[in-house]
Amino acid sequence: MKILVCVTSVPDTTAKISFTDGDTKFNKAGVTFITGPYDDYALSRAVELKEQTGGTLTVLNVGEVDSEQVIRKCLAIGADDAIRVNCEPKDSYFTAVQIATIAAQEKYDLILMGRESIDYNSGVVHGLVGEMLGIPSLSPIMKLEIDGTTAKMTREIEGGKEDIEANLPLVLGCQEPIAEWKIPNMRGIMTARTKPLRVVEPVGEDMTFTEKYMLPAPKGACKMILAENAEDLIGFLRSEAKVL
């Protein structure tokens, strides 16, 4: 089986978000970048599937050169090779065009990615890629088994889940508990250095343009209620906050 996993390089979940250049650019100073947590679940499941069924596992990142440390980590976890499309992924449509362009040439059986990236949280790239390739796309997938050319999956729906079956090829947006996050071992880290990483230039253009970034208004002070007067909360919620 030929598997592609698309990964994003995103600020660590504890990162303090700020902007520079008159609020037109993300401030990378002091920020650690990690593999998108949902993409990391997708990659972990792909490594397990490759171990079971054989075949190849490629990681694809649409990103600038500084995302190569994230790509190397994915190689250390078990991908065979990597492709980086050299541009800043600012727009979902544009990002999907890059992935679909490569996938149309390479004909993967399975294309996995996170259900959303944790920077833009759009949650649409899987669907865009599926439609661009003319194959089904499903998300958020929390369980995935491959049986020959059939995928058996569980998809989370509001208030529950549904079991799904479909033939490959497929594009899937993944989330936990599809697999446990994997940590690279020493051997993986050593071999990752020499695994092939191909850099290609992007095609097409953005369909949206981010003009300006803003931070939320600071939160007002918290009103503390003594434990012995806890019942007063309900009155405050009704008469002061007006939410009951």
Partner: peptide, 23 residues
């Protein structure tokens, strides 16, 4: 926004070559 709505809208964006923004 919903897991179904976003998944559907994404495919429609590709069909129509539309700009798509979530959240």
């Amino acid at each position: 926004m919903s897991s179904l709505g976003n998944a559907v809208a994404a495919r429609v964006a590709a069909k129509l070559k539309a700009s798509i923004v979530s959240n």
